[in-house]
Amino acid sequence: MGPASMIVLIIAAVVFSLIAIFASKFVLKATRNKQKGEPYECGVPTQGKTWVRFNVGYYLFALIFLIFDVELIFLYPWAVAVKQVGWIALVEIIIFFFILFIGLLYAHKKGALKWT
């Protein structure tokens, strides 16, 4: 019954969101004009394109995050079964971390973790 009630909850959440988002459409008729449709940037007319290249630092963090997040998923089964698998698994995890740590150290040395 667990997964089924979860699906019901998902449907309930989506339905609620849809109703609430479109409720205001029926309450009030929106008027449109060009000035109203402009992006608000402190009242100054917007300059140039918005979707431009931004700081590469965000990408670097996202990449490192990806590595660590995958690693995190590997750790969950071990964490749950830690009492059964014993010391050998702990040593293996430490080796696993050591390799990752070298990677993190490399990223650190390259300046990827430094925010400029």
Partner: peptide, 27 residues
């Protein structure tokens, strides 16, 4: 007050994603 406020979608925005964003946050 929030319900009765006018719902403005900027002309330059990506409309489908503009609606999807808050919906996803809520869900």
């Amino acid at each position: 007050k929030l319900i009765f406020k006018e719902d403005i979608i900027p002309l330059t925005s990506n409309k489908a994603l503009f609606v999807l964003g808050p919906g996803l946050a809520m869900v």
